[in-house]
Amino acid sequence: MIKLEGLFKSFGKGGVLKGLDLEVEKGESRVIIGGSGSGKSVILKHIIGIMKPDKGHVFIDGVDITVMKESSLYETRKKFGMLFQMAALFDSMNVWENIGFGLRRRRDLRPADIKEIAVDKLKMVGLVDVENLMPSELSGGMKKRVGLARAIAYEPEILLYDEPTTGLDPITADAINDLIVEMREKLRVTSVAITHDMSSAYKIAGRISMLYDGKIIGTGTPEEIRGTDNPYIRQFITGSATGPIKIEGVSDDRNIDRN
């Protein structure tokens, strides 16, 4: 369903993706974990075709979107819904106009129908009576929910989540996790989420892949990942500053007595 093959991408001098391969099957819920700035968002933007790779291919349902004409690419994007890290709601529109944005080109729908669909989607994400508010009047958690409602409005086959819980308090974050699981069960969509929040990853993932140094270095179910002996993945999931993954600007010989 989604297949990334030998993907290379660099910005300026530094390579972000260095021959990345990834395959996500239909109906699967995949979570990609990795450090900040490791290129996780870049992967999502390649899947939906907002970014073009320097080298490599992206197949969606067997069709290579990297060589597609622009008009077909926009058609293919209708299969997708994406939730952005900061929700990326259009701040010149109110909540229901945001949710209905992707629907407004459908000529068979009147504004009243679109609003009805929007209210319906809002209910699905647990929000009522907010359809006429402006994005600036919403809290962070509400924005994410509205962002999710917008992503599912077009009834996509594939949902992409860019750090769905980042910037939220633990309780709101868990509510968003529940919502993602619920979406998967209700809508039977394929989903790819990127996160560095391990509790979120364990909860929403069917399988987890870890991105390190521009490549996927391991994939497994949450249980397999928990029990992995790969030192890189171990360091990441236990959240340790010492190990094979080096943090820029922190010297190796720094010893901290943690006791």
Binding site: Y74, Q85, A88
Partner: peptide
């Protein structure tokens, strides 16, 4: 910078 332009693209809008 708030990714609203990316969001437009994901909503199949040029």
């Amino acid at each position: 910078v708030t990714e609203q332009i990316d969001a437009l693209e994901t909503l199949a809008t040029n």
